[in-house]
Design a protein around this nucleic acid. Structure first.
Lengths: 207, 207
DNA sequence: TAGATTGTTAATCGATTAACAATC
DNA sequence: TAGATTGTTAATCGATTAACAATC
């Protein structure tokens, strides 16, 4: 697995491969060619072969790809061979929604705690996970080997959380606040900017 | 505004311009050059000028861009000069979270109703919006000139909703289910594939 | 006017597609 | 073996960056 200098465009396609291969697997399909996969996933066969060959030769000439093997390989590339401890900061509606997503847990993202500053929310239990006072954030995440924080605060609280994260062993942030966080280079940030997404939709809608 | 053949890459940057210009506006900054904007937004000055010139010459040589004008122009391009009626299908945690987002309403996306098939949820009122039985979906959306549906069902229900949408006057779908919907060409679909996003994060985290 | 900065053309860079030899 | 399909190189296409004349 010679993954280096892989472009972001390729990486962002990987979860989609993973999703479609899972579906093929569930339908008991044993093998697939880049041409057949192209038809269902919507990438060109050429692109599929190029993408996969960034990580190794997973196919076999004249045969195609073994669905199960390829699914597992892509899972490995995506880091799904181990578990990750996570916490949510901001136990409002969105935080609670994420806490209830069972698919994250199934993929190995294990929610260890939720944090808030609102006394009315602190102490609640959501999907078996306690909402804790933000005061104990730093000790909790370090004691529990938490690697990923989902930031579900509002815009104004998000950078404060990011600042506190930088004093802990947290390695990655999944940010849902509508702001671009300023953090150290070595902290990974993935943004879900809902409003940006909605505005892209309205761009196309505005005939 | 000669917008045609604009690449998706450009369009997806527009909401970010909109967001940063709003911030400048809030800070009473009257004008900005592509060079200064480059520093705060992180795109090159050259790219900023190229992007904006896809839609018209909004700047002035020797001066830069008027922040307020540019903000308004980008708002226009993004379709923010009118309101859109919306509904949510799937009034679970995520649906409720979206219903409580005030920023969508502020931008002109007005939530008119929420739908579910669960009798325990039907009849609830969330942020002043009623949860209605999915049985009345088609009549409701047509009677209320609804243009956008947020799909917040699980994976399995999403395509069924999409199929029913195609028999109404709905023009766009904001899809949160982890599936690529099959719909007519003229229906606009924007996906928020949370799991894809999380897996991109774990790709980088898996050292 | 001189300085600054745009709008726009040209150059470069990167990503996608096409082609085909290798080989199962 | 013949047919199919990969892995990979080459060609094309598109997006980003650089450069600079136009002009405020």
């Amino acid at each position: 697995m010679k993954d280096r200098n892989i472009s972001l465009a390729v990486i962002r396609r990987l979860p989609k491969y993973h999703r479609y291969l899972k579906e093929l697997l569930d339908n008991d399909i044993k093998r697939i060619s880049s041409k057949e996969l192209s038809k269902i996933i919507g990438f060109t066969a050429s692109q599929i072969r190029q993408d996969l060959n960034n990580f190794g030769g997973f196919g076999q000439q004249g045969y195609g790809y073994n669905v199960e093997d390829l699914y597992n390989e892509i899972g490995k590339i995506l880091g799904l061979t181990r578990n990750y401890n996570t916490v949510i900061v901001g136990a409002g509606n969105l935080g609670q929604a994420l806490a209830n997503y069972s698919s994250f847990d199934r993929l190995g993202f294990n929610l260890k705690g939720m944090f808030d500053i609102n006394p009315k929310i602190i102490g609640l239990t959501i999907n078996d996970v306690k909402v804790i006072d933000m005061d104990s954030f730093e000790t909790f995440v370090n004691d529990n080997n938490v690697e990923i924080v989902y930031i579900c605060t509002n815009r104004d609280g998000a950078q404060d959380v990011a600042d506190r994260i930088q004093k802990t062993n947290i390695k990655a942030i999944w940010n849902f606040a509508p702001i671009d966080l300023k953090v150290r280079e070595d902290i990974i940030v993935e943004n879900v900017h809902l409003i940006d997404n909605l505005l892209t939709l309205s761009y196309f809608l505005k005939e």
